[in-house]
């Protein structure tokens, strides 16, 4: 399975409302980040959670975000960061 992104790529988490078992927390939706690593293909939790197969697999990445980008009033240091796993169908290239 090919990955659409490689480490270092700049991406944005797609901002959409989607009911059901979604593993993309609201606080990263619409936010820009950088691919930290490719985790690999994983079952899609959005169907797996409902007793389905989770197929086709979705490519999973770890994405690094600047805390100051996630929270404009963040009170820590400028280089503080957050890393989280995001499935490919929730990412767009920027």
């Amino acid at each position: 399975m090919d990955s659409k992104f490689i480490p270092g790529d700049k991406v944005r988490v797609i901002e959409r409302s989607q009911p059901g078992h979604v593993r993309t927390p609201m606080y990263v939706r619409g936010k820009p980040g950088v691919i930290e690593r490719i985790v690999g293909p994983q079952p899609n939790p959005e169907t797996l959670a409902y007793g389905q197969s989770g197929l086709p697999y979705k490519m999973l990445y770890r994405v690094n975000f600047s805390q100051k980008v996630l929270w404009p009033d963040y009170e820590g240091q400028d280089n503080d960061s957050l890393e989280i796993e995001i499935y490919e169908h929730w990412l767009e290239r920027i």
Partner: peptide
């Protein structure tokens, strides 16, 4: 300390 980066890992999926 301020000269150390804090890196948070949100364990939201398969890792």
């Amino acid at each position: 300390s301020e000269d150390r980066q804090v890196r948070v890992h949100d364990s939201n999926a398969d890792l």
